[in-house]
Amino acid sequence: MNIVLTDAARRQLLASSPAEGHVPRIDAEMSGGCGVSVRFSLVWEEPRRGDTIVPLGDDLFLHLDRFTERYLEEQTLVDYSETDGFIFGDRFDSSCTT
């Protein structure tokens, strides 16, 4: 699994001040009836047993549970904007860092 942060997402994660003992986690939420869709969000929570920990450099890492890991693309781009917060996708562009 390869998770890539844009510069904006990296800056936002580094600037975050989570509660003590909380870690950044990508969570998947399923919605819909006949056409199920999966929506991802970045939250700060306590680590869970069995988490996959994805290192991102600069002392950054993300936690994933098994459910979320199943629905992420093999290569996932994480971006950030002031209006939309963290945005998850699978396309890469020149503003990405690894």
Rank of each mutant, 00 (worst) to 15 (best):
V78Y: 05
T52V: 08
F61S: 05
V78S: 09
L56K: 07
H22W: 05
E73L: 03
G85A: 12
G33C: 06
D58M: 08
A9K: 02
I3G: 13
T6N: 14
Q12E: 15
Q12C: 03
V23E: 14
G35I: 08
V78E: 07
E73Y: 03
L64Q: 00
T68K: 00
A15D: 15
V38Y: 11
I3S: 02
I3Y: 08
S94W: 11
G57D: 00
R11I: 11
L77Y: 09
L77W: 07
T83N: 15
A8C: 07
D59E: 12
V23S: 13
D65N: 04
T98I: 09
L14C: 08
V36N: 12
D93V: 04
I53W: 08
D58I: 00
R25H: 04
E29N: 08
P18H: 00
S31H: 02
P18E: 03
I3R: 09
R39I: 09
I26V: 14
P55Y: 03
D93S: 12
S31I: 08
E82W: 08
L64F: 05
R25V: 09
G21I: 01
G32S: 12
M30I: 10
F92R: 07
L77P: 07
E73T: 07
L62M: 01
S81L: 01
L64N: 00
R11K: 15
V23N: 04
F92C: 10
D58K: 08
E46H: 11
D84M: 12
M1R: 11
R91A: 12
E73F: 05
T76N: 00
F61D: 04
C34H: 13
T52M: 13
F92K: 07
T76I: 03
G85H: 09
V38T: 07
D65C: 01
Y80N: 07
R49E: 15
F67N: 02
D59V: 03
T83M: 10
R25N: 05
D7W: 06
T68M: 00
